[in-house]
Lab assay of single mutants.
Amino acid sequence: SADYSSLTVVQLKDLLTKRNLSVGGLKNELVQRLIKDDEESKGE
């Protein structure tokens, strides 16, 4: 998976916004949300 932890919070929020995901929470939560979304989209 992508190394989201190396991105800035601003970059993470931009990715979340593009996916229509919540941008609330700490950086670690944003990273986990993106990883979870990646895993769910692979399952389709």
Rank of each mutant, 00 (worst) to 15 (best):
G25Q: 02
N28Q: 12
N20H: 10
K13M: 11
L16P: 00
K36M: 09
N28T: 10
E39P: 03
L7R: 03
D3A: 10
L34N: 00
K36F: 07
L15H: 04
L21P: 02
D38W: 04
G43W: 11
E29T: 06
G25E: 02
Y4E: 00
K13N: 06
V31T: 04
K13G: 03
K36N: 11
G24L: 15
I35K: 08
L15W: 04
L16E: 00
L30R: 00
R19V: 02
R19A: 03
L7G: 00
V10M: 14
G43M: 13
Q11E: 12
S41E: 08
K13I: 14
L30P: 00
D37T: 04
D14V: 13
V10H: 13
R19Q: 02
S41R: 15
E44P: 13
L21D: 01
E44R: 12
V31M: 07
G25S: 01
Q11F: 04
L30Y: 03
V10W: 12
Q11I: 06
D37S: 11
D37G: 05
N28E: 15
Y4L: 03
G43Y: 12
S5L: 10
E44W: 13
V23Q: 07
L12M: 02
L21R: 03
G24T: 15
R19K: 05
L26F: 09
S22I: 06
R33C: 03
I35F: 06
N28L: 09
D38I: 05
L26R: 12
S22F: 09
S5P: 06
V10P: 13
I35R: 08
V23F: 06
R33Y: 04
T8N: 07
E29C: 06
L16C: 10
K13V: 11
I35L: 12
R33V: 03
G24Y: 14
G43Q: 12
T17V: 11
L7C: 07
S1I: 13
D3Q: 10
N20M: 07
K42R: 13
E29Q: 08
N20A: 07
E29S: 06
L26H: 12
D37A: 11
S5Y: 15
R19M: 03
K18L: 10
D3L: 11
L7Y: 07
R33G: 02
I35G: 03
L21F: 01
T8K: 05
L7D: 00
L34I: 04
R33S: 03
G24S: 15
L12A: 00
V31F: 02
V31Y: 03
L7S: 02
V10Q: 15
D14F: 13
L26S: 15
G43P: 11
V10Y: 09
T17Q: 12
G24A: 15
S5G: 10
L15S: 02
S22V: 06
K18Y: 07
V23E: 06
D3R: 11
R19D: 02
S5R: 09
T8R: 04
S1A: 14
D14C: 12
S22N: 08
Q32H: 08
K27Y: 07
E40A: 13
K36A: 11
S1D: 09
N28R: 08
Q32T: 08
A2F: 15
E44N: 14
S1F: 14
K42Q: 11
N20Q: 09
S1W: 14
S1C: 09
L7P: 00
D37C: 06
E44L: 14
D3M: 11
L34H: 01
Q11A: 07
L16I: 03
E44H: 14
V10I: 12
Q11Y: 04
D38S: 04
D38Y: 04
N20F: 07
V9E: 08
L21K: 05
K36G: 06
R19Y: 03
Y4V: 01
K13P: 00
L12K: 00
A2L: 14
V10L: 13
R33N: 03
E29P: 00
Q32L: 11
K18T: 07
E29N: 05
K36R: 11
L21V: 02
T17L: 14
S5D: 11
E39C: 09
T8V: 02
S1G: 12
K18Q: 12
L21C: 04
E29I: 06
A2V: 15
S41V: 08
D37I: 03
L26Q: 12
K27M: 06
S1H: 13
A2M: 15
S22M: 07
A2G: 10
Y4H: 01
R33A: 06
N28K: 11
K18S: 09
Q32V: 07
K27I: 07
E29L: 04
D3H: 12
V9N: 05
L34E: 02
T17D: 07
K13E: 06
L30D: 01
R33Q: 03
L15P: 00
N20D: 07
S6A: 11
